[in-house]
Design a protein around this nucleic acid. Sequence first.
DNA 1: TAGATTGTTAATCGATTAACAATC
DNA 2: TAGATTGTTAATCGATTAACAATC
Lengths: 213, 213
Amino acid sequence: MNKEKISKSVIRRLPRYYRFLSELETNNIDRISSGKLAEIMRTTASQVRQDLNCFGGFGHQGYGYSVPKLKSEIENILGLNNRFKAVLIGAGHIGTAIAAHMKFEALGFNLVGIFDNNRDILGSKIGFLPIRDVETVGDFCRSENIQAAFLCIPRASAKGVVEKLYNAGVKSFWNFTHYHIQGDFPDAIVENVHLGDMMMTLCYSMNEKEEKV
Amino acid sequence: MNKEKISKSVIRRLPRYYRFLSELETNNIDRISSGKLAEIMRTTASQVRQDLNCFGGFGHQGYGYSVPKLKSEIENILGLNNRFKAVLIGAGHIGTAIAAHMKFEALGFNLVGIFDNNRDILGSKIGFLPIRDVETVGDFCRSENIQAAFLCIPRASAKGVVEKLYNAGVKSFWNFTHYHIQGDFPDAIVENVHLGDMMMTLCYSMNEKEEKV
DNA sequence: TAGATTGTTAATCGATTAACAATC
DNA sequence: TAGATTGTTAATCGATTAACAATC
């Protein structure tokens, strides 16, 4: 399965394939051609075949792809059957939303701890998880063998928290702050979410359209 | 300013430039060379110069770029001085987090209305804005001349809501659902946020690293 | 078998990096 | 002026699309 290095662009498309295939499966569609799948995903048949062939020949000539098989292959490639143990840091608006809203189990994770530095909310619960004191996060991660952290804290406190986490063995981060983790921890695995950047991009597109009119 | 079509990759980097320039400005750094800026942004001097030159010659040979000037140029290119009137649909976890947390004014927007379909929370406030009945969103958008909508609702209700909004003149969307707006409204301006996809990508990277070990 | 559709190679397109003359 | 650094052209690299032989 681990032939060559798979390009980032391909990886970023996999969740998309996975979503559409899940949908097809729900609708009891059993097989699909690269052409039809491309149409649904608004891409080209070439790209679909090229992408899928990075991982092996999942299709059958003259037939197409089996939807359930392809779905489960992608599930495996992405590693969604994992239950990576994760903590969430920062029970503010975004943190609470993430904790309450995301279906972690379907996304390869298991959220087992929530931390904040606000004494007033310690002990109160989000779902089934109590909010713990961020001072204790190092010990918690060590004893629970935590592998990932979701950072929903202000930028200013990010560096200190990441240091603590990293030293406790947490090397993977879903980062909502603008703190540049890779700068200080080059071998960390990081997925950045810059919501502000996205809004600015939307703003640009609107602005651009206006200028044209 | 509107020479050629600017590529999407360049646009997506502009907010990043803007953030780092803001930081430099805060630290009272007045000028910077493409090389130094590239170092901070973890890219190449070539790319910095290439990117900035899409919009015009902002630098001075032998000197570099003026930080405040460059920052304000990018601000203009992105159109952050706009105050596009926007509504937010869906006052659940994500919606509330977005409404309470984002600095819209610094990002080119002005949030003027929040809508939900849950009768129990109608009238209660997020910040200064009351939650309104989503049934009334069409009239509201028409009379207030709303230009953008932030969709923080379940996928199932997305299509109906977008139809209403679109017919009321709202053509730009920040979309947290997995509903494919462009499919039904090809000329809409859409910025999708697929949080689940990002988590899957993180999962892939962690999975991949484990396999190597 | 004939038709369909893949897997894969080749061609194209776009984006990034390197190089260097222009010039402050 | 000499040194620095841009703006811009050319070279490289990677990603997407097209084409087609292999084969179910």
